[in-house]
């Protein structure tokens, strides 16, 4: 079966500083040199696929490009280079401004971080869930009402709460409204951006079970962004670890957690409270390097890596396969 989503060499680079376009042009003409402009490599040459019905976890530190990648995938921003193929169609060519009016908008939906802040305080739960149906599927009247009630029931939101405003709902109920809003247009791909990080453990368990059930019932694929690795392990078939805009490791969840190939993955797993990693805890020193103008011929993790050698400073690591679906970008990957 063809993958639902295919991402090839996706790159997002932000140009920094250097004044206005006109100013740069003038400077170039006057000095007859091309001024150097710093470039921030937010996402750099990322490729992966998501199969229908599959759940892919995306983990990494803040600033590693998770959110930039997500905004490109859901087509809220335009990639600098690379291709995003959704159900075989290249959707990266459509400008983000126009994507909202294509039929694919309803097929790729997002559940945003923090249910407390991502709901419009002036919309009732009903309005929130009805909004995408009105806009994308031009539903109204009885049909709209029936669809909203059906969706609310699917996520376990009692009928009586539909008239309430966000401030009258509990954290768990807000999370349900958010999920209902996202699944109302019947998406094929649901991007979940830290859906439970703002919730209590008692509520988190319920929401995770709900998400797992919905995926099986509706046959959706998930891209699950989180930095809680215990949660990723529960919900995901495969895991992708990002570091400074690059994919550090990609593989089946079980393999990545039990036999991590990349030293960064090992450090991440060992930092989970309560985890007893094989070989004792690995603590990382310092912070990631700057994503501005990174050295193309060095490993991004070099300098922070516990096993880094000279080779890592001079040659970017190749992709090393560790298993049929498991691979990592490290010179010293554990096979």
């Amino acid at each position: 079966m063809a993958p639902l989503l295919e991402v090839e060499h996706l790159t997002k680079i932000y140009s920094l500083g250097g004044g206005t376009k006109a100013g740069r042009w003038l400077k170039q003409r006057l000095t007859n040199t091309v001024p150097h402009q710093p470039r921030l490599h937010a996402v750099d040459d990322v490729s992966f696929t998501i199969e229908p019905g599959e759940s892919l976890g995306l983990v990494g530190e803040s600033g590693c490009g998770k959110s930039t990648l997500v905004t490109m995938l859901v087509r809220l921003s335009d990639p600098t280079a690379g291709v995003i193929r959704f159900e075989g169609r290249d959707i990266s060519a459509i400008p983000a401004k126009r994507f909202g009016r294509t039929a694919d908008r309803g097929r790729i939906q997002v559940v945003f971080q923090d249910p407390h802040e991502s709901l419009n305080p002036r919309h009732t739960a009903f309005d929130v869930i009805a909004e995408p149906l009105r806009r994308l599927q031009a539903m109204n009247g009885k049909a709209l009402e029936a669809k909203v009630r059906e969706t609310a029931e699917r996520v376990g939101l009692p009928d009586t709460l539909l008239g309430r405003f966000p401030h009258q709902l509990s954290g768990g109920q807000k999370a349900r409204v958010n999920i209902a809003r996202a699944i109302a247009p019947e998406p094929r791909l649901l991007v979940l951006d830290e859906p439970t990080s703002a919730l209590d453990v008692s509520v988190q368990a319920v929401i995770l079970k709900l998400l797992d059930r919905l995926r099986r019932e509706l046959g959706m694929s998930y891209l699950f962004v989180s930095h809680d690795l215990n949660v990723v392990r529960l919900l995901c078939d495969r895991v992708m670890v990002m570091y400074l805009g690059r994919v550090a490791e990609l593989g089946p969840a079980h393999d990545v957690f039990t036999e991590p190939g990349h030293p960064y993955t090992r450090a991440l797993i060992s930092a989970i409270p309560g985890a007893a990693p094989p070989g004792g805890p690995v603590r990382l020193e310092g912070d990631p390097k700057s994503p501005i103008d990174p050295d193309p011929n060095a490993c991004r993790f070099h300098g922070r890596c516990p096993i880094g050698k000279e080779l890592c400073a001079g040659t970017a690591p190749p992709w090393v396969p560790l298993g049929p679906a498991h691979g990592t970008a490290c010179h010293f990957a554990r096979r």
């Binding site: 453990v201 008692s202 509520v203 988190q204 368990a205 319920v206 995770l208 079970k209 797992d212 809680d228 215990n230 949660v231 392990r233 529960l234 919900l235 957690f257 989970i272 309560g274 985890a275």
Partner: peptide, 20 residues
């Protein structure tokens, strides 16, 4: 006990965690 049972941990599957 139920707080502990609701917490995801490395050796638990989704069926093992219980909500309060």
């Amino acid at each position: 006990a139920s707080l502990l049972a609701a917490t995801p941990s490395p050796d638990r599957s989704l069926d093992d965690i219980g909500a309060i």
